[in-house]
Design a protein around this nucleic acid. Sequence first.
RNA 1: GCCACCGUAGCUCAGUGGUAGAGCACACCCUUGGUAAGGGUGAGGUCACGGGUUCAAGUCCCGUCGGUGGCUCCA
Length: 695
Amino acid sequence: MPTITLPDGSTRSFDRPVSPAEVAADIGPGLAKAAVGAKIDGTLVGLDEVIESNVHLSLITLPRGKAHADDDALWLIRHSAAHVMAEAIQRVYPEAQLVYGPPVDGGFYYDIAMPEGKAISSDDFERIEAIMAEIIAEDRPFVRHACSVAEGMARLQADASKYKIDNAQRAIDTGAETLTWYATGEADDAWDDLCRGPHVPSTGRIGAAKIMSVASSYWHGDANSDRLTRVYGTAFAHRTHLKEHLEQLEEARKRDHRVLGRKLGLFQIDEMVGQGLILWTPAGAVVRQELQDFIGRELVRQGYEQVFTPHVGKLDLFRTSGHFPYYQDSQFPPLVDPDQMAALVNEGCTCADLSNRLREGDVDGYLLKPMNCPMHIRIYKGQPRSYRDLPVRLAEFGTVYRYEQSGELGGMLRVRGFTQDDAHLFCTEDQLLDEIAGCLELVKIIFSTLGIETFDVRVGLRDPDSSKYVGDPANWDRAEAACQTAAEQLGASFTSEPGEAAFYGPKIDFVVADTIGRRWQLGTVQVDYNLPERFDLSYIGTDNASHRPVMIHRAPFGSMERFVGFLIEHFAGAFPAWIAPEQVRVLPVSEKSAEYAKRVHESLVTSGRRATIDASNERLQARIRVAAEMKIPYLLIVGPRDAEAGTVSVRARGIERDLGAVPMDAFIEALADEVHQRRVSGLTEILFPEAATPA
RNA sequence: GCCACCGUAGCUCAGUGGUAGAGCACACCCUUGGUAAGGGUGAGGUCACGGGUUCAAGUCCCGUCGGUGGCUCCA
């Protein structure tokens, strides 16, 4: 006889098995009406689940009015909406086979195997959504049918549904004793789908659903397997929530670095130059240069030495490092010496021959460098090294080229040519922890200076069951411990991820999300036991014997392209003054004040500011609007009153009004201070303490 | 690389197989205005590129290039 413990600690006893629906009804009719599912001992279940033993039960309800549903309720709604969408799609395309339809962040999808020659396109959305709306309006119950594994498999065999048989087999392999179908409706011929559940009690509880996009996917995520059509949708408890969600997506689109990059003139991607190749326009170049100067000073402080290396190197270099031909697919093809090329042509060498001979090393050539490390390693190796020299820290903003698949490219976040704020540290085993900690400190300085607070730290460790790793296991243990310790010292929370190490060593990655939720690795610190081996690196120890150094690859920004792309979105284009391409713009009220405006502008430039003057033939309001849209931190409006008093009237970004007049020198000094301190927040607090309430 | 969608003026986008459009931006003129768009005139196009169907193609079909979303990949 079950005793049910509710979240508030109270208990209810029943003299027979009960369902969550019955428990809800027992508590009150309001709850019974609001409930869409339950959690039994932490596991999400439907309202019809049979409870026979003592459990902790919490009911999942849809809130009344405009309040938002919690994650569990949304999960149920979206999982159910996926069924409704699948039913609608099968009504339009009866031959479509269902594969797998889970809820995901922000919505759900359903993978569908379309018959040869048929495709779901966005033109179908309206039709499918209309059918979905119909099913939701009918408020048909989700009815669970369970049967034995044998019975269920027989049914699936009869239906010849290859994908569902596979799903069922997986369930059986993980210990399922029954197979369940969920029907939408009670009739014998109601539409149903093999599904583990649970679902909301009826289709009407899905308040609002919308199809978002269609994409392709692979069965089991395997590129060599069947290609499926993945239809994405989202659903909410109320229509207003869906509307809010769509508005948020619209807002996010405005933060998109590709949109802002064009609007603010930060970068271009030119099809005549090539896919995934960034042209840094003057405004964007300022942002990048400020960041590079910033980190450059930290590098000097940490004892790094600057180097410069070429963009191409001989294939043999990359054969030794192992980059060629192993990663050949993601490299631009090698460049061959012109004389050698001519000779090859004379002997009738085919493209396939050439490719083979490059791979075998019969023909030499040059490679656009996919990594900087081999070059830095050659610098290390360029002179004998003593333990007294270590750690050797070689830094370079090194530009590398990788032939990423065309479908992977996107804005500045995934490109084919990019500049890493790269460095390679050569040290002893004993120095490893301190050096890793130093690298992490750089990332910390960058993130805290720029106010980046939302990021993941991932420590990639080796998979204990794999043998793909190079290097001495004892060293690995030490390096992994060093990574974990350094990550702990960093103070941010992190996750340890076994199996995520590179084959050559453990690593620490910093991961952020872009405005549409995609995740990108920025900074990285990687220990490497492989390359010192391949290049036979050494140093002379205190014992006068030769020893192998450990190497660390590290890039606190990751790449300038990806970092700046992320930063544009992070600030929505409104950069702090120290990195803003244009820090201050002077607006004379009219031509009468043009002379004074010029003096103010000159003073700003003299003090090192990036300042312009807008004396165009437009009304002040129009010029303010233009400047505001360019997200310039400060506008100085100067008119006859200011010229008389030697003041400037200040308008700060984000505060839509005149803050008042201050002496020109006071403003210049305050702005210089804000820039030199690299403050994210403005000088407004200092000059206008009573007005500093940013919008 | 795979699938779907998209490509019209610098940008954002309209455009029924029958003479290429708007707003913004740009140039010039008027306006000299104290805090988020003053007014007028003008210039700007091989409708991504190449084929095809048609009396006729921005519009329909095929291919190429480029973009977007997702999948796969990411040293």
